[in-house]
Amino acid sequence: MATVRVEAVIEVPAQQVWEAVADVGAVHRRLLPGRVADARLEGDVRVLTMPDGSEIRELIVSVDHVDRRLVYGVVEGQKLPLTHHQATFQVFGEGERSRLVWWTDVLPHAMADAVRARTERGVAEMKRVLESA
């Protein structure tokens, strides 16, 4: 299994970043407006509606407020040909700023570069949104 790790230093305190990450039903407003058109929760499943109308279903595995860690797995709807996709976000405090780390485990291994490109764009967008809030 390939693991992709992408991170960004965000000029916002860790608790503020964590509150946005942990608000799993509001990713379209708090982290990725424009990239995600809507989000809703159906039990432990987050359904993301993309701007083109397609949907991605993600099983929310863990929202750990003590360690500021979110784990989810894509269970349906991704456009990349992946047989496995699980991701973890973790927020670390660094004084008045924070470090957001996004790990993604994927299969097949050959898809790691495509996933890395997506997560790098996503982290850059999240950094911009969080710092402008």
Rank of each mutant, 00 (worst) to 15 (best):
E76I: 01
R97H: 12
V115T: 12
V9D: 11
A114C: 01
W102R: 08
V36F: 12
D105G: 03
V12K: 01
Q15H: 07
D113M: 05
Q15A: 10
V24W: 06
Q15K: 05
V27Y: 15
G25S: 05
L32I: 05
G93S: 15
D105F: 00
L82D: 09
L107H: 08
D67Y: 03
V27R: 06
L41F: 01
R121H: 09
H85N: 13
R35D: 12
W102T: 05
E120M: 14
I56A: 05
D23R: 09
E19F: 02
S62G: 00
P51G: 13
E42W: 02
W103A: 13
P108E: 13
A14D: 07
D44L: 06
L32T: 06
R30Q: 12
V91Y: 02
D38A: 15
V106Q: 06
D64H: 04
G77N: 08
P51V: 13
V12L: 01
A39F: 01
E76S: 13
L70G: 07
T88K: 11
F92G: 00
M50S: 05
R46V: 04
V21L: 06
V9C: 00
Q15T: 08
A112C: 07
S54D: 14
A20H: 05
D67I: 00
A117P: 06
V74C: 13
H84N: 06
R116V: 00
L82N: 08
L130Q: 02
E11T: 02
R46L: 09
G43E: 13
R121S: 08
V71C: 13
G43M: 12
R99A: 07
H65E: 15
P51M: 10
T88A: 11
Q90T: 14
A117G: 10
L32K: 06
A39Y: 01
V6T: 05
A114K: 12
F89W: 10
